[in-house]
């Protein structure tokens, strides 16, 4: 199994460095700089997966770390633009609450599985990418009512589906470990 100190996890960790300047940019009303920082965070999100495959350093911790970084970075951006009144707050409350429920369900799933594992929700992966855009729509003040309310509605639907899968459905057993650990990760999801 690859070490958790690897290039992919370093890229994931570097995403957090965009958050303080993002807050600074929003606080000063620098919309375009805020959008640019979110864009950089999103690009790094694409690269960490590619780096994991390139350097063969995929680990269960890395998968969890990536999911946590997604929630924290995009959640932070959403909360900040809401706090500064750039987007409507009711759908954001729904999204943040459901995001917390999602993280709790993943912890329940890992406990049920009896190992470090991340439930791979294909639907939630799409919503995470959409969530990355929400911050950008917020900083650009671009059809915020439309995009935020639609996202909240979609998240309710996906959460209903994933709750059943994570909390109630049988959990597939892990495959025998390979050198890279990639096969185990696939089977665990």
């Amino acid at each position: 199994m690859a070490s958790n100190l690897n290039p992919a996890n370093a890229i994931t960790a570097s995403r957090f460095l965009t958050l303080p300047p993002f807050l600074w940019a929003v606080d000063h009303g620098y919309q375009q700089y805020a959008t640019l920082l979110l864009f950089v965070c999103g690009i790094l999100d694409l690269f960490d997966g590619a780096a994991a495959r390139l350097f063969k350093c995929q680990t269960p911790f890395g998968e969890m770390f990536d999911a946590i970084a997604d929630a924290l970075c995009y959640g932070f951006a959403m909360v900040v633009v809401t706090a500064y009144g750039w987007v409507p707050w009711p759908p954001v409350v729904i999204i943040v609450v459901l995001g917390a429920v999602n993280m709790a369900l993943r912890a329940i799933y890992a406990k049920r599985a009896g190992r470090t594992t991340n439930y791979q929700s294909h639907a939630m992966e799409r919503l995470v990418a959409y969530a990355a855009y929400l911050g950008g729509f917020g900083t650009a003040r671009y059809e915020t009512e439309y995009f935020y309310w639609v996202f909240a509605a979609l998240m309710i639907v996906v959460m209903l589906h994933d709750t059943k899968r994570m909390a109630f459905d049988p959990i597939p057993s892990a495959a025998p470990r390979s050198a890279s650990g990639g096969a185990a990760l696939e089977a665990a999801s």
Partner: peptide
Amino acid sequence: DPAIRDRIFGSLVGIVVGFVG
């Protein structure tokens, strides 16, 4: 297969998100 059903649902959500965009 639940994994296949997950992929179907995920792709449907992806298509909807695309049209939303």
